[in-house]
Each structure stands twice: as C-alpha cells, then as structure tokens.
Design a protein around this nucleic acid. Structure first.
Length: 457
RNA sequence: GUCCCGUUCGUCUAGCCCGGUCAGGACACAGGGUUUUCAUCCCUGCAACAGGGGUUCGAAUCCCCUACGGGACGCCA
C-alpha cells in the first residue's frame, strides 16, 4: 500500500478554534499511526482575513499542541509552496486542463464548472428565483466514517471569481491532487461540498482520495456549532490558562473518537498506536469543559516531576512567586503535584511555601478558632518541635504522637489544624507531616513564633 | 424550501455490521468513608436505547415512517 499523505488545510483567521485543532489532531494522529506524512497547507486565498499575525497564532498553536508537520510552512517539502497564495501558477495550469476538456465556461466574468447531464429550469424556494439545474449523475462517496453516501450536485458552480481569484473548491482539489493527498480527514460540514470535489477530481482524471468526515463539535450551551467567539473555544485560551498541551490533546482525541474499550487516558505513544479511522464517531459531540479539566488534571499527575517542575517554574515566577532555592521548589512541587488540579491554580496553591508574609484565609481561621484553645495547642506544638533534632517526617510523626499520648489523645489530630494554619494560612494542602518536614525546622518554628502577632481573631 | 448526515444516562461514549448481556465505562451530580483538609483517594447511588409501526420465539441491534438535532445550498474557507 502506498504511503499515507494527509493534510491539515486551515485558513488563518487570527485564532485557532478547538474544532480546527481537533481536525488537525485527527490528521496528525492518522499520519503518525500509519507512518505517513502530515502536510500543513495554508489556505490563505482570502486576502481580506489573512495576516502574518493570524498565521503566527496558527503555527504557534500547532507547535504548542505538539502537532509537528512534515511538510509545510517553515519546514518546506517536495510539494510546495505550502501557501495557496503562492500556488497561482499551478491553479492556472490545472484550469487549462478544464478548458481543454470543455468542462468550464465563463459567465459574468467568473469561471463556472460545467456539470454533465440533462438541464432544466426550476423555481428554487431557497434562492427565490427561477434557476437552471442539471440532472447530474450522483457521486458515490465511500466515506471512512459514514459509509457510502450518494449525492448529486445540481448546479454548475463557480471555480474562479470574476476578480480572477480561484475559489476554495478548485484550489482544495488541485492541491490535494498535486500534493498526492491520499486521505482527506475533515469536518462534516464539508460532506455536502464533497460532491463538488468529486466532480473536479474526475474532471481532472485524478483518483479520489479516501474521505473521512468527522463529526462537528457542538456548543455546550446554545444550539449549533461551537461558537466562534468568546473564551474557551480557542487553543490560545487554554495555553494562556496553562493547560497542559497534551491534556488538551488527550481530551480532543476523545471528542468523536474512542478506543472501543474503556480506556480514556493515554500516553502519546498509546494514542498514536490506538488511533484509527474506524473508531471515529458519527454523531456530533458537545464540548464539556469539566471533562477537559479532568483529563488535564490526570495528565498533570502523570508528568515526571522534572517536566512538571519545568512547566511550573515559569508559571510561578510569572505569578510573582520568588524562588531562590530550586531544590526547595522541587520539594514543594513534589508534594503538590498529586493534589493540585491545574497549573493555573498552582501559584495560589503553593505561594505560602515561598513567602513568610503569606495571607490568612479568613474562613479557615474562623473555623479553627471556634473551638478549643488553638493558641495553647500551637504553643504546645512549638515547644515539642523546637526540641526535635532530627527534622524528618518519621521523627515529626513520632513527636506528634508523643504529644498526643502525653495529653491523653489517641491521635494528634487535634493539634493539626492550627499547626497547618499557622505555617500556611490555609486549611488544606499537602499532607501536613511531610509538608513540615520539607519546610524545615527554622521556617516552621519562625512562622509559629510569628503567628500570634500576625493573626488576630 | 431542497439535499446530505446524525439520534444510547445531563455530557463524552461501549454495545449496533454478525439480533438473546442486570445496556458497560468516564465526566458531572448526590450520599457515605478515609483524611488535620471545601484537596486527594475509596465506595455507593442517580441516570439512557427519540417516538411509532413492522420482521422475529426474542430488537438498542434488521426494515419503514415520524419527530428532533446538525450540515450544505456564497464569486467565504
């Protein structure tokens, strides 16, 4: 079997929509799965909308997601150029073939593709006009997702505008032929266009690629496709919110595809290994950010500590967390990785580790001071902790146990809330004993020392 | 309006091709447990075959109709 060649052919608009990203991902995964080639072709024929900035958003988004292309902008390839705006000569050349075969004609300055079949006129309810139609032979599309789809195109269509610019249908097909594309994986919104494309492939005497029309992603709120505006629908939004690129990738893969068993979390290698066209869903999917967050959290937990730290450090620094000891930071991150739900909330989750002037959570304080004599308890803890020489988790654990039994308690839990609050200002976080061990004796004791003056009920 | 595609828990989905399972999993939600913890983790629960006709001993699975959803019908891509 010949090598698979797939392409992602976006039109840069200034943002990278999640729906486009998923189309890119499915193409990329299929290429990687089959050992084929992933082509990035920029459909920038609409001069109004396409700017260098828009292209940059797109390329940056692709790289951020890890969707590297084998041919395309900045990497080149044997089938270039990869910008449609630079392929004009090729379109003209193909257009000549259609003229020679008498499959096109000019009308109102535009070039129309001529369908073959009996012609008739009919009043069209949609166009609100009497128009010419053609009884063309239905095109039979053997779609990898939908099976056999039959549809006839019933009107000649424009392939070159009166201003001389070739239209999407033409350039798309010409490029797919010229670039040797074997599989066209794209959104279902193109299924109806496919009959036009088949007509063109045939007029050029080119074999049809294998089509795979993937379901749409619907808005989680309103009706219709996922909105083109607003936050939460663009790749850039998730990059800004410090989502893990692979968390988004894993989630996107699940939107319209599944592995046919119960596995949902994959390593990249597993995803590439298991992805295939038959696993693609027919029905449209609705975007659910809660599930995205869940997948993102799970992927964060699976990160090797080194990678987690490499991602976390710049985020912490950008949030104003002063890191002067990398070993200490790594220790903090090690304790936090399994507890935190996103990189976005990480700075808030760990800030107190790095700043002795941390804030106190009002509600947590109120709860703690509602019962007992927390200040007395804190004094007791401070006293026994200052005597600890071997500042290890094991020793601290034993020290707290000793305190508890000396006071007639079975467990030292009664001393925990105020201890945590005094050294962190909050009521939750990593497990207390390992956390104290990691913070070090000096920091813990000085924070407990400062507590009564820093916090007043 | 015409044509095309689709329809299983609130959401993502398995099962459908090759009829027979308490219709399975995940997210969310609810309750319980663990925990110093409005974190994590564990357990339990909730909850679906769009409707109607067939075919069949038996249908989520096959056929037909209806409804609903999505898409296309641009000299946008």
């Amino acid at each position: 079997m010949s090598q698979v060649r797939v392409r992602f052919a976006p039109s840069p608009t200034g943002s990278f929509h999640l729906g486009s990203a998923r189309t890119a991902l499915f193409n990329w995964l299929y290429a990687r799965h089959t050992g084929g080639t992933f082509v990035l072709r920029v459909e920038d024929t609409d001069k109004e909308r396409n700017t260098p900035e828009a292209l940059d958003v797109l390329l940056r988004g692709m790289r951020w997601l890890g969707l590297d292309w084998d041919e395309g902008p900045e990497v080149g390839g044997d089938y270039g150029p990869y910008f449609q705006s630079e392929r004009r000569a090729i379109y003209d050349e193909y257009l000549q073939k259609l003229w020679a075969a008498d499959r096109v004609y000019e009308k109102d300055g535009a070039v129309f593709f001529r369908l073959e079949g009996e012609r008739y006129t009919e009043y069209d309810e949609y166009k609100k006009a009497e128009i010419e139609k053609v009884r063309a032979k239905p095109q039979v599309i053997d779609d990898a997702v939908r099976g056999v789809v039959e549809r006839a195109e019933e009107r000649d269509f424009v392939i070159v505008r009166s201003n001389g610019e070739p239209v999407f249908h033409l350039v798309n097909v010409v490029d797919d032929i010229a670039m040797g594309i074997t599989h066209v994986i794209r959104g279902e919104d193109h299924l109806s266009n496919t009959t036009k494309h088949c007509e063109l492939f045939q007029a050029f005497g080119a074999p049809l690629p294998k089509f795979a029309h993937i379901p749409m992603i619907l808005s989680s709120t309103g009706p219709g496709k996922m909105s083109k505006r607003g936050d939460g629908v663009h790749v850039e939004d998730y990059e800004r919110r410090h989502f893990l690129p692979y968390g988004l990738v894993n989630f996107l893969a699940l939107l319209g595809w599944n592995a046919k068993d119960d596995q949902e979390l994959f390593t990249l290698a597993e995803l590439i290994e298991r992805f295939d066209l038959p696993g693609i869903q027919k029905g449209n999917a609705r975007f659910d950010e809660k599930k995205l967050s869940h997948v993102n959290t799970e992927q964060i937990r699976r990160l090797p500590l080194g990678e987690f730290a490499a991602l976390a450090q710049p985020i912490l620094e950008a949030a104003g967390v002063a890191i002067d000891d990398v070993n200490y930071m790594n220790a903090v991150l090690k304790l936090s990785q399994e507890k935190v739900r996103s990189l976005e909330e990480l700075p808030g989750f760990v800030a107190y580790f790095f700043d002795d002037n941390f804030n106190f959570d009002e509600k947590a304080g109120e709860r703690i001071f509602k019962k007992g004599e927390p200040l007395d308890r804190l004094a007791e803890v401070k006293e026994i902790l200052s005597a600890v020489v071997d500042w290890s988790a094991e020793m601290l654990d034993r020290t707290f146990m000793d305190l508890a039994s000396a006071k007639g308690h079975e467990k030292p839990f009664a001393w925990f809330p105020i201890t945590r609050f005094a050294v962190s200002g909050v009521s939750g976080g990593p497990d207390l004993i390992p956390m104290l061990a990691m913070m070090g004796k000096e920091r813990v004791l000085s924070r407990m020392e400062a507590f009564p003056s820093r916090y007043t009920v």
